[in-house]
C-alpha cells in the first residue's frame, strides 16, 4: 500500500466523518430552522368544513395503553369538577374540533412534539404552555414572536384561563370547557 493511497484514504475518512455530521444536521434542520408551513389547497379546507357536525371524530382518542393512563396518579379523574376537561377550537382551520385535557401540561406550537400542533405563519415552534395549577388551567407564553391572546389581551405572565374564554394563537382560537 503506497503512502499516497493511505493519504487519500485517511483524508477520505475525515470527509466521510464530517459527511455523517452534516447528514445528521441536515436531517434535523426542521428543528433548527422551524417547521415549514404546509399550505393546503382550498378544496381540502372545504372538505374539512363539515367537521363541526362530528367533533369527536377527530379528537385524538387516548389509546388503552397510552402513557398518561398507565400512571398511578392519573387514575384519579383528570380534573375536578371546577376545572375544564376539554379544549374546543372555536375558530381557524379546524374550528369545532375538541380534544380532552388530562391533568398533564399541554404544549402549543408548530413543533411536532407539541400537544396541540398549530402550523400556520403566526405560530412559533414552542409557542405556549397550558398547565393545571391549583385546579385551574394557566397559560404561559413561551416568548412567542406573535404572542398569545387571552380574551383579546396579550398574555405576558402566566395567566389563569377562565372557562369559555377565547385564547387566540395565530389564526386559531380555542376555549376551555367543562
Amino acid at each position: 500500500m503506497s503512502d499516497l493511497t493511505l493519504l487519500i484514504l485517511r483524508l477520505a475518512f475525515l470527509l466521510v466523518l464530517w459527511g455523517f455530521v452534516f447528514a445528521v444536521v441536515y436531517a434535523l434542520r426542521t428543528d433548527l430552522f422551524g417547521q415549514r408551513v404546509r399550505r393546503q389547497s382550498v378544496p381540502d379546507a372545504a372538505a374539512a368544513a363539515p367537521a363541526p357536525s362530528a367533533p369527536p371524530s377527530v379528537a385524538p382518542v387516548q389509546r388503552p395503553q397510552t402513557p398518561a393512563n398507565s400512571l398511578p396518579h392519573s387514575t384519579a379523574p383528570p380534573a375536578t369538577s371546577t376545572s375544564a376537561n376539554r379544549l374546543v377550537i372555536t375558530s381557524g382551520p379546524r374550528s369545532g374540533v375538541e380534544m380532552p385535557l388530562s391533568n398533564q401540561p399541554l404544549t402549543v406550537g408548530r413543533s411536532s412534539e407539541s400537544g396541540l400542533v398549530i402550523r400556520d405563519d403566526y405560530t412559533s415552534t414552542h409557542h405556549a404552555r397550558l398547565m393545571l395549577l391549583n385546579d385551574s388551567w394557566v397559560i404561559q407564553d413561551l416568548d412567542s414572536t406573535n404572542g398569545t391572546f387571552l380574551d383579546g389581551s396579550r398574555v405576558v405572565v402566566p395567566t389563569q384561563i377562565p372557562l369559555n374564554t377565547a385564547v387566540r394563537i395565530g389564526t386559531t382560537s380555542f376555549e376551555l370547557r367543562r
Partner: peptide, 13 residues
C-alpha cells in the same frame, strides 16, 4: 418516544 406518543391534536393552516 413518550413525548411524541402523547395524545395530541394537529391544526394545519
Amino acid at each position: 418516544d413518550t413525548v411524541r406518543n402523547q395524545p395530541r391534536l394537529v391544526v394545519d393552516a
